[in-house]
Design a binder for these strands. Structure first.
Lengths: 322, 322
DNA sequence: GCGTTCTTTGCTCATATGAGCAGGCCCGCG
DNA sequence: CGCGGGCCTGCTCATATGAGCAAAGAACGC
């Protein structure tokens, strides 16, 4: 573009967007035909001189969603705007809200929804509106928190989601991780537990989050693991946990021994699911988000703008190393 | 606005502005009539959810200019965008550029232009394009720098502006401030000097900047004043200097004795001018800018967005103390 | 200097959009 | 229970805008 044209296009854009003039009026002000003005305006937009941003806590970033779907091969992506949000809690809350919105508008409505638990999922459950669906049954897909927390964060998440959808919740009556493999096998073969696991495996859709691999993990908080355990896992490449199982950057299980003592849906089932929705937000979870997406653990990702951008960059660079 | 409508207007805005959908298409996506979509879009704009910004070094802020004109009673105002610019030099340069643009498009073209000198004015002179006008004579309106600087910053500013306009420059062959009143009177009555001062007083238009009242002043730099002198002036209320004369917040001369030893156009002449253009940018000059504008020293102000906002706030608060 | 090719310009026409209005709905009030 | 009054909806119509095209102009090679 010629320098003088660039300047003109800026003047035109000012008059058009800030002063609400018509292209015709701008034409007479700048001594141009209105078609020229139209073209200058188109140039200004194309060159990125005109920035249009939607500022709202519930705003999404549709173009980013599209790129995320394309670069990461997701069947759907929801990206919440995080412009001007520096607070990670706020980010988490917005993302949870978006996940709730997504669930509510999901068609066809799943009959059975398998869910994990954690801070994010709880947040989602609280953001759902009463009557968000008509009769969705909810089943837990991994062992619950019960050791030292106020009993039932996990349970209440599941129950809330089910209640608000007019369905009922099936809880997984088991710890998340057992200390001994034999105990795990025993519990797993218990009829009540096995029935829930079967139900979980047959769910139409899954909704889960992921935790960062650090001492802030809910598994540490709940007493299943010590900070040292987590540090050890990190040394072996862990980037975070998905439904209680620690994975590395490629989405592979980090510690087979630990994994075998973990009760819940195997990651393979998640990878084979028609519809599995991951809700992951925050700078601390960029690495897990990448692992989840790259290894096909989810078909739908709900996340924040920065995480999305991070994923897109990573995936475009690795696929097209120019 | 109803909550659900607010959310819908956000969704509509996303589809309209980010996805370039037509209102009709959005209607079928959101199950609304296209008129409803139009109204939602209008609401979104009115509520400020849609932020449109023009991002370019030479972008101006027309709505701010209008408010500045109105609240400060200026006949014209030029406000350059300073979004994302933290560097004061960059700000200064952009403002100077805008001043140069303004001069170049000024109609009617002044036959004689009175100018001051300083970093800002020099910047303006360098941004002017060759042939920006056909035959404008330039005359200095205050005494020049000559003591310790590379001779002729002031002179070169005037000469450059004149040359580029195909006119010629008249320099004021005198120091800015004299040490003794008698010397000042003697110089002033010298025929050569008096002639220049007369020419300056009869100029059609003036272009000047202002300096902040601190040790960085060009008057200090040139050796006319010591940092201590300036500190003393500040104690007596000085906010900055205009064509070499220190003024307080109300635009009044701070030190009559000093003022009488200062050679150049009296501020009254500036106040009475048909057209006097002040070019003032940067956070350090907010106070002087306010003094210049409030006391009617300029009819046109060229400045940056932050300074403009500062002035508008000040003037709306003082006029309408709600 | 001349023809060729590519770009830019000003246009026509189809489409998208906003203003303004009539009818219907909901609310409160008598 | 019936009756205004205000608000929202969906419309018509005028206007603003963008696509596509032919002609003018500029740049280039020969």
């Amino acid at each position: 573009m010629i320098e003088s044209d660039e300047l003109l296009s800026i003047r035109a854009a000012e008059l058009y967007y800030e002063e609400d003039k018509t292209q015709d009026e701008i034409g007479s002000i700048l001594a141009l035909t209105r078609w020229k003005v139209g073209r200058l305006l188109a140039q200004a937009k194309a060159s990125g001189f005109v920035r249009i941003e939607i500022v709202h806590p519930r705003a999404r970033r549709l173009p980013v969603e599209r790129r995320l779907r394309e670069t990461c091969g997701l069947s759907d992506a929801i990206v919440v705007s995080s412009s001007g949000v520096d607070d990670q809690d706020e980010l988490q809350s917005r993302t949870a809200q978006a996940a709730a919105d997504y669930l509510a508008t999901l068609r066809p409505v799943p009959r059975t929804l398998g869910i994990s638990w954690g801070r994010t999922l709880d947040d989602v459950s609280r953001h759902l509106e009463d009557g968000w669906a008509g009769g969705v049954d909810v089943v837990q897909i991994n062992g619950g928190v019960s050791l030292n927390r106020r009993a039932g964060t996990a349970a209440s998440t599941a129950v809330t989601i089910a209640q608000k959808a007019g369905g009922h919740a099936t809880l997984l009556p088991s710890p998340a991780i057992l200390e001994r493999l034999e105990t795990k096998r025993a519990i797993e073969s218990d009829r009540a537990v096995a029935a829930v696991l079967d139900l979980a495996a047959s769910a139409d859709a899954y909704l889960f989050s992921a935790g960062a691999a650090d001492a802030s993990s809910v598994l540490v908080d709940s007493g299943y693991l010590t900070p040292d355990d987590v540090a050890g896992l990190v040394r072996r490449g862990a980037v975070g946990d998905v439904v209680g199982r620690y994975v590395d950057a490629s989405g592979a299980i980090v510690d087979e021994g630990l994994d075998e003592r973990t009760i819940g849906l195997p990651l393979e089932r998640l990878r084979a699911a028609q519809l599995s929705i991951a809700v992951i937000a925050g700078a601390a979870k960029h690495a897990v988000a990448d692992a989840v997406v790259s290894s096909g653990l989810c078909t739908v990702l709900v996340t924040d703008e920065q995480t999305a951008t991070h994923l897109i960059e990573k995936h475009t660079n690795s696929e097209d190393p120019s």
